[in-house]
């Protein structure tokens, strides 16, 4: 069905970066360089003094580079350039996944921010265990949800109870792929809550 196909396209576009920022910055830097080169060329044609260096002098400089610059300076500059190139390659070839989770639905494509999931899981845990907001924190990664619980001093908590509550909460979300759950019960309790 064409409709489902387009929904999938929407999801892919939403969950992956378009690399527009990297592209625009690269284009702007290249444009600045070209503008400078063009200006120098025009100035040289109409016999005006160059802004920085005239094109023939620039070529001379480039040809004589290894004999005028110290070898280690040349090596460092080369390594720097290669590093920038490697960065561009990484930006171009990594998937660039956004911090979003896909929710399985029929009619619409649905994505949920990690932060929304973390807040909801924290809230449920807090309710279940009767804790204060400061005592529960949740981190949501791509494949795992980690709930960090600091029990009130003197009243121990049951980990299986918390796990059951978190899993029950998550089962209603239908996140694809389903993340694993880790409950991290701290040993030192919180005082004065």
């Amino acid at each position: 069905m064409s409709e489902t196909l387009h929904t999938r396209r929407l999801l892919r576009r939403e969950t992956h970066s378009s690399r527009a920022v990297a592209s625009v910055s690269a284009a702007v830097v290249l444009l600045a360089g070209l503008a400078w080169l063009g200006t120098e060329a025009v100035l040289s044609v109409v016999n005006q003094p160059p802004l920085i260096i005239s094109p023939p002098a620039l070529l001379n400089w480039a040809a004589g580079l290894p004999s005028t610059v110290l070898p280690w300076g040349l090596t460092l500059a080369g390594l720097g350039l290669a590093l920038v190139g490697l960065m561009f390659l990484l930006v171009a070839l990594t998937p660039g996944t956004r911090d979003l989770h896909v929710v399985g639905r029929d009619r619409t494509a649905v994505v949920v921010d990690s932060e929304v999931i973390a807040a909801a899981v924290s809230r449920r845990t807090r309710q279940e265990a009767g804790l204060d907001p400061d005592q529960v924190s949740t981190r949501v990664d791509r494949r795992r949800i980690t709930v960090d619980v600091r029990p009130t001093s003197g009243s121990p908590l049951d980990e299986t109870l918390i796990r059951a509550a978190v899993e029950d909460e998550l089962s209603g979300y239908r996140i694809r792929p389903e993340p694993g759950v880790r409950i991290n019960l701290r040993h030192e309790g919180a005082l004065g809550i």
């Binding site: 576009r13 690399r19 690269a26 040349l74 460092l76 350039l81 290669a82 561009f88 171009a92 070839l93």
Partner: peptide, 26 residues
């Protein structure tokens, strides 16, 4: 998006090659 990524790959390869040549010259 494929255009962005292709051009970024090209740019990366050119920079990598120029950088490698410069470093080799040093």
């Amino acid at each position: 998006r494929w255009l962005n990524r292709t051009l970024l790959v090209l740019l990366g390869l050119v920079l990598l090659a120029v950088g490698a040549l410069t470093a080799a010259a040093g």
